[in-house]
Amino acid sequence: MQSTKLLGRPRKNRRRRTQIIVASILSLLAFIGLFPYLFMLVTSLKTNPQFYHSYLYPVLPFHFGNYVAAWNELEPYFVTSAVVAISTIVGSIILGSGAAFVFARFDFFGRTFLFVLIAILLAVPSVTTLIPLFLFMRDLGLLNTRLVLILPYIAGSTILTVVIMRTFVEQLPAELFEASQLDGAGGFRMYWNMMLPLSLPIIGTVTLLSIVGVWNDYFWPLLTITQNNLRTVPVGLTYFQGQNSTAYGPLFAGYTIASVPLLVFFTLLSKWLLTGIEGGLPT
């Protein structure tokens, strides 16, 4: 930046041109990346005749009725996914934050061993547990219930919560906790009044990761849920696609509806996630 000043005007013009070229290339890349989603939005408002007549461009009148039609079919999937996602978030934050607090702030027999026992599960892929867990859940009679989804999801999110939150809480200055202890705060008070409020960024991150997990997991709900009204959004959506494969307006309206929750939560919570990525990565 300083060199421009030294080198004078011709350099400055070249700089400007470079900036314009760079911005143009980036615009092109962004457009290519976003195009399928713009196409989805535009098509979601068309009837089939409109679609065949004007394939790429929006045409009036818009048919918002497509969204009503799509929602009527997708509603049960949304109910399941919402119930499962909320249970997962609440369950994993309760279980995970307590364990993370214990691991980060107390010395006790087996502390490292027990932590490693949890962290090692991050390396176990879902394919490995998929088949045995399915048979186990079948023996317990949990297939075609919401519990068959909630239990493994809480477990998965708890593992993440414990590992991420423990690292975070350990980095908080010990003086904070010592001072509150001096003031007579017990373990629970420290956890509730100090650790939880301070860990809000981590809670935000874990919440986002849990929602993304529930909204993207495919094989487990595909195999464990066969009753249509208990299906989750990802599995239900493929079923919905099979039903509406040539009714393009409602089809794309359905895709749009299914995307809304994740888009909203990304907008609200990605700040936490991005700070996590930018703040530093495990080596």
Binding site: G33, L34, P36, Y37, F39, M40, W215, N216, Y218, V233, P234, L237, T238, Q241, Y255, A258, S259, L262, L263, F266, T267, S270
Partner: peptide, 13 residues
């Protein structure tokens, strides 16, 4: 932005 779309929606599109 496309990263924030659900996996299954991206695949179906």
């Amino acid at each position: 932005i496309p990263f924030a779309f659900p996996l299954v929606v991206r695949l179906l599109i």
